[in-house]
């Protein structure tokens, strides 16, 4: 039981850390990583949710299925994010590592 709660708390802390990093760091890669850490945190909580007290039968399979699905989603999204980050770095003159993202709303042109 305690282990279970610990896992859950751990997952929440991971989520919170990721959240903080996502908001605080300006580097694109860090942001992507932050998101990954957040998802890892969520998965941890989810896995902990599968816990059944001894004697209450087998481990709940549904969270596992969800975690698996989640991981797949996470991987593909991360891939897309990375590609986009690369594109941003290629096409924009901004120095991503230093200045972070700058989108100028006023001058941004559509098309």
């Amino acid at each position: 039981m305690i282990t279970n709660t610990l896992y859950s708390l751990c997952g929440l802390v991971l989520f919170a850390m990721g959240l903080f990093a996502l908001f605080a760091c300006s580097h694109l890669l860090r942001k992507i990583l932050a998101v990954n850490i957040m998802s890892a945190g969520v998965f941890l909580v989810l896995v902990a949710a599968a816990y059944r007290p001894l004697g209450a039968g087998e481990v709940d399979p549904v969270p596992h299925a969800m975690v698996l699905t989640g991981i797949v989603v996470s991987v593909s999204v991360t891939a897309l994010a990375l590609i986009l980050a690369c594109r941003v770095q290629e096409t924009s003159n901004l120095s991503i590592s230093r200045n972070g993202l700058k989108v100028n709303d006023e001058e941004g042109s559509g098309g």
């Binding site: 996502l22 941003v88 924009s92 003159n93 901004l94 001058e107």
Partner: peptide
């Protein structure tokens, strides 16, 4: 669209969406 502005915006959009999804 391939323009820098749109890519930055799209990236931001993606991150926000991910945050939201998570």
């Amino acid at each position: 669209s391939g323009k820098p502005a749109s890519q930055i915006a799209a990236f931001r959009y993606l991150l926000v969406s991910l945050l939201g999804s998570l």
